[in-house]
């Protein structure tokens, strides 16, 4: 697992208070990890802060799963 994926996972565990084993790439923040819409806003902010990236609102709306987040951040970092 990449360093980015590791860090994303850690942030999700911390913010949503879920077991690490549940934070699989396919896990949906809302459907599988018990987040509500405000939680997801906070999560995106935490990603922005941790990875020093800007995630515009229209992009943030498309980040529904752990993998979505990892992919988006990896793309930004590669650019």
């Amino acid at each position: 697992m990449s360093e980015i994926a590791d860090k994303v996972k850690k942030i999700v565990v911390e913010h949503l208070g879920v077991e690490e084993s549940k934070v699989t790439p396919e896990a949906s923040f809302i459907d599988d990890l018990g987040a509500d819409s405000l939680d997801t806003v906070e999560l995106v902010m935490a990603f922005e802060e941790a990875f020093n990236v800007e995630i515009p609102e229209d992009a943030a709306e498309k980040i529904a799963t752990v993998k979505d987040a990892i992919d988006y951040i990896e793309k930004q970092k590669a650019a």
């Binding site: 405000l38 806003v41 906070e42 902010m45 922005e48 802060e49």
Partner: peptide, 10 residues
């Protein structure tokens, strides 16, 4: 300001 928690108001 853009880093303000969405939970600030509630």
């Amino acid at each position: 300001a853009k880093r303000l928690s969405p939970f600030f108001i509630p």
